[in-house]
Amino acid sequence: MTESAPRLGFFARAWTVCAKDAAQELRRRVAAASVFFFAATSLALVSFAIGPFGLPPDVRGRVDASLVWIILFFSAATGLPRAFVREEETGTGLALRKLVPGVVVLAGKALFNFALFLAIAALSVPAFALLLEWRIGSPAALAAVVFLGGWGLAVVSTFLSALVARGGQRNVLFVVVSFPLLVPLLLPAIAATIEASEGSFAWTPLRVLVAYDGAATSAAYLLASAAWED
């Protein structure tokens, strides 16, 4: 007589999905490497175009903060939408749909995307600061902005990836559906980054980020099965 396997909890199962995605990415490496390559290329382009002395000091903080988030957003946009699209391309979507509830898959893939975003930010932001002599007055405040902005970006991108995964023109479609939904996240993130570079915590934009993350996470949680399951 065989014993049935112990039933895993929500977070354990989400973590399993996250670990599966990480193992797949580490095995293929091409997708993750292309995301980092994109970030490095855009960083080099910005560095060439502007450089540390190309901007007047009174606008530098604002422009630097905007450029950091533009680089982060577009680098993430090359990798994050792959969360569900990859399952359809490799033909594993059906099995995943049958074995794991949609909300667990979404949580696992959002975790993986969040980790990917943090890795991109951990390399891009210091490189940007170094190449453009961008002084960060409060690294703790900047870390809070990147953390909150990154979570919102990961959740929204993962949810939208589930929606577009089985549509035509997936890559174009992802950009079309994600940009308007992510602007309300990017605006307070840029505002808080400006303050962080000047050495202070911008509480109002940070509160907006917390509210946005909460709303996006709750909505994605409630709509996960409608977005992914048949």
């Binding site: 929204v156 949810f159 929606l163 559906v177 308007p180 939904l181 602007v183 309300p184 996240l185 907006v208 509210a211 946005y212 709303a215 996006a216 709750s218 909505a219 994605a220 709509l223 409608a226 977005a227």
Partner: peptide, 13 residues
């Protein structure tokens, strides 16, 4: 699903 998700995030915009 998209319309509901958009409706939740629309007030931020």
């Amino acid at each position: 699903a998209y319309a509901l998700f958009a409706a939740v995030l629309m007030p931020f915009l």
